[in-house]
Design a protein around this nucleic acid. Structure first.
Lengths: 385, 385
DNA sequence: ATTAAATAACATCACTGGAGAAAAGGTCGG
DNA sequence: CCGACCTTTTCTCCAGTGATGTTATTTAAT
């Protein structure tokens, strides 16, 4: 129910042109006009404006057959920079991301799981100071900070509602970090920004409906619809960790029984494994399976089956065009992706939907959250400007 | 990546004004201007135009305190009519729906489950002829036909991909019906249009994210996002009947095991019941439970539990602001709604999401599909005009 | 006299379309 | 073989269209 006026048109068209160049560079003015349906005049005017603001440059002259050469336009990728932050229980990652989603520089910092929010926020700020002091970075080009973390986030107000992994509850992360650094801060759930990154710069470029699944210390999913993160009413959409997959199953920390996460969480798998014999890491567990220990075979096969079931349930409900598997389990253990995919295709996907989507493994891996957070904050910036 | 131009603005603003009057009638020009942010001039101009086209009329003059009286505007509800059709295995419903979602007239017609598509389509056409011959109906105001049916539908092309209930596969319903009647035809899944009806005229007015669940001969769900049906890639979003809820469960007709529908389908419940003793209808089954027959208690309680689990899974994935229960089971058996709601609130909804959504029972009941189909075709009409 | 609703006349501004300059390839006659 | 000429394409300039917004005016109530 919002009005539309000339200003809206202008901003929208500017954005359309900019996005098109960002995604399909290098490209000529004429090609943009053709593809968007705008008149060449309009495109030219917008391009002039964007060039003056330093976002674009004319990269080359190329002959398209007969006629005047077309001048190709390209993005000045360093014209907009943002800082991406990944917060997790035991570590944090900070990086500087450019317009094209490249990680210009970055660092990994350990974090004490019991660290207070204030301490962590201060250390993020220090890390940013450190990175931006590197000479190549033009600090005036930084438009904001994005933070991705596990847990439920109020993304509008930038508040971490609660995060089991961080041990946080009701932390006004955005406000405090903005106070400290002066930059605009966007906060969101890690899987949501990771999905955004894969959609914009990873394996799901061009997809209209991307579903990303994260199998790791938590279990979750995220959905990108027409380039936008689907959030739901309280930004909790995709919290599949507590969907019930077996009413007779184990007790979950949430107080229900048979939650999905009790079957495929790394923590749950390890604690189950330790009923048999001491197992420290998930790699050890898979090693035990490879060497044929029956209990490990059973435990892991059950987990893999539930992962395939989860893919099916996601596909039935979201009906996406791309499904991406990600998370520690997928990144660290090569067979997880392959076996889940095989299970899906052979048995667990409802037949009418087989082939309705592309199956991918995360391409950006552990850089996904940092890149996604950075891109999120850039998106926020462009929406406003 | 589409251009925005003045024409787009104009259409959009016209629609905005029209929608606002439709939803908040009666309302004055000034109030519309305030709420949309448009200038009074623009609103006045659009109102004049819509009035000339016969969609609006000035209903009353009301003094809002000091100052000139405001003239209230209202919808001419009969200015746009459409035909809603509900197709099901054993019957079909046809009705005429006005702008406000009122069912002006309608009829129920039996259908032979083995009837061929051509026969059914011909009978729909006859039924429409019958209804439109009623004198009160201004046939020139009818803008199209909407059809809702169980099954997977290609809504863009109006093709019924397949429908177990109707026994149809690859039927070009829209094209054939358009040929026969001359009207534009929109086709969609019954739950999707039912959700649309509840969102526009039923129990979920004003909701931004409505999830509707249908428990009946099939099991399904539909999601309305910001007033639009969420369809997914192949218009199959929300097909929860074949999400897996118990990998060790019963064989489903789809070839997988433990599909949700094997637990709560009316058909499945009856066939399970008949292992014990002959049971014809779902009412009989619930009667058996009320009289304390243990097998019936168990069977039904299991079903109710799975319904609650389904609500939880929907809530976790879609994170809606409203959840609507509908379908034959809910409509015919009063305790289903109450018990499922009780189960949800006491045990089955993940704690952080309790209270994040409103729980409703379908308000339009068996008229929902007819009304929704009619409104769908009206929406289609307004998008184009 | 003041306030609010509706309207009329005028102003603003984003896009369009046509004309024209620039630049390259193709064609054709000498 | 080569230069003149034509065609095609890109891009820009300028006037024109049509949407909304602004300001002033009329009407009606406190």
């Amino acid at each position: 129910m919002k009005k539309h006026d000339q200003d809206f048109i202008r901003r929208q068209n500017r954005l359309t042109v900019f996005e098109m160049i960002k995604n399909q560079h290098p490209i000529s003015r004429a090609a943009i006009a053709k593809r968007t349906g705008m008149s060449p005049t309009t495109v030219s005017r917008i391009v002039t404006e964007l060039t003056e603001q330093g976002y674009l440059f004319e990269s080359d002259q190329v002959s398209e057959g007969v006629g005047r050469k077309s001048t190709l336009l390209d993005i000045v990728s360093a014209s907009v920079l943002s800082i991406g932050v990944e917060l997790d229980r035991g570590h944090m990652n900070v990086g500087i991301v450019d317009l094209q989603g490249n990680l210009l520089c970055g660092g990994k910092y350990p974090r004490d799981p019991d660290e207070s929010p204030d301490k962590t926020i201060a250390r993020i700020s220090e890390a940013i100071d450190g990175l931006t002091k590197l000479q190549e970075i033009d600090r005036t080009r930084i438009v904001g900070i994005g933070v991705g973390l596990p847990g439920i986030v109020n993304n509008e107000k930038g508040i971490v509602m609660f995060s089991v992994q961080l041990g946080w509850k009701n932390v006004a992360l955005a406000d405090r970090l903005k106070e400290l650094t002066g930059y605009e801060v966007a906060v969101d759930n890690e899987l949501k920004v990771k999905a955004l990154a894969e959609h914009l710069k990873g394996v799901a470029i061009g997809s209209s409906r991307t579903a990303l699944l994260g199998f790791g210390n938590g279990v979750g999913s995220a959905l990108i619809l027409e380039g936008e993160i689907y959030r739901g009413e309280t930004n909790s959409a995709g919290e599949i960790g507590h969907t019930t997959v077996d009413p007779n199953g184990m007790m979950c920390e949430c107080g229900k029984t048979g939650c999905l996460q009790t079957y495929i969480n790394i923590g749950s798998l390890l604690s189950e494994a330790n009923r048999i014999r001491p197992i420290r890491t998930i790699e050890e567990l898979f090693e035990a399976r490879r060497s044929g220990e029956q209990w490990a075979v059973q435990l892991i096969e059950r987990a893999l089956m539930y992962m395939a079931i989860t893919v099916n349930n996601i596909v039935c409900m979201y009906n996406p065009d791309s499904v991406i598997l990600s998370g520690e389990l997928v990144d660290k253990i090569p067979e997880v992706y392959e076996e889940v995919e095989a299970l899906c295709h052979s048995r667990f996907i409802w037949e009418p939907l087989r082939g309705s989507f592309a199956f991918h493994r995360s391409e950006l891996n552990e850089r996904g959250v940092v890149i996604g957070s950075g891109l999120l904050s850039q998106n926020r910036f462009f929406e406003l400007s």
